[in-house]
Amino acid sequence: MAAILRAALGYFFLVFMVRVVGRRPGKQMNPFEFVLIFFIGGLALTFVVADDRSLTNAFTQIMTIGLAHYLLVLVRQHSPRIAKLLDGTPLILLAHGQWHEEVMHGMLIDPQDVMTAARDKGISSLDGIEYAVLERNGEISIAPASKG
């Protein structure tokens, strides 16, 4: 019972922490953010597993985390408000040659991140971007400027 509660608590606590840490982890993840994710994961393991290293515990905790995740996804699908709380909304970073500085600053994103996504699309300069949008999954999607 305690092990199952620890697993569920660990899952929801990590979901909360990852949400608060920000949306940068995703395609824009840099090596420092890898450290963050692995370190948090490793530390969570100690209190979730505690002193019960049995196969039974591993299986029941994995099943608990699976159920907790399913529940969260189900709630998210049925409630747009909870979906917004969990994922946020897409945010415009750049539109018609204008940076949306409030969003860039708030989401800790700099022009280099946008240019990385643009190069991925074969765009070689910032003026080739009509819109840059930070998506809910942390990716930056680019709408190229129409030629002429």
Partner: peptide, 9 residues
């Protein structure tokens, strides 16, 4: 179509 909600953000 982006669906941005800056007030929520």
């Amino acid at each position: 179509a982006v669906g941005e909600d800056l007030e929520f953000q």
